[in-house]
Amino acid sequence: MGGLSIPSPGSSASRHRKGRARRLKSRAFGLQITSLMDILMIIVVFLLKSYGLSSMNIVQTDKLELPQSKSVDTFGEGIVLIVAQDKVYVDGEEVLTFEGEAEERKFQIPEGSMDPVGGRGILPIYDILARKKEEFDTLAARSEHPDEATKKWTGELLVQADKAVNYELLRQVMYTAGMAGYKQFRLTVEKFPE
């Protein structure tokens, strides 16, 4: 009888096929790991090069475009005030929403937000900055050495402002922060690509 036939279990043909499969299975499969290791090594070196020793809290948003500067690397930590195209945030907390469309970049402060006396301080920003300072003072007073703890107040404010902000708004923000007890402004800028 011609043609193919399915070998019955236990027959010599079946045993032959199993043996072949076993040989194929047991053959070592050589993955080219060395070249993969090279790639990984390059990635690690690149990432280590761009790894900063001190991380700064930068909000990645399309509504905030920092100006570029040639200043040398400096890092800092503290209370972060962000003036984005649409809103103002203090330590991630939304404080103020500008009037109008964000794309227009008018940075118009809503009515009633300015200090009626003098008209230069921005009340919602003042409230939250003063509250943060009070919280620090309260914690310092409760510590074992209140005098030493109070001295640790540096009054530093990290300002991250959009590059289209005009000086008028920047001055109002700095004036407000100054009134709330912040004496050192650290303008956060994007490092100019070398």
Partner: peptide, 26 residues
């Protein structure tokens, strides 16, 4: 290496930032 890359990707800031200090006038 893969663990290290995952960690570095998490902490690396691709946007290089710096600070300009301006004290308030007194």
């Amino acid at each position: 290496f893969v663990t290290l890359i995952a960690f570095l990707l998490l902490v690396t800031s691709l946007l290089a930032v710096t600070l300009i200090d301006t004290p308030a006038p007194v």
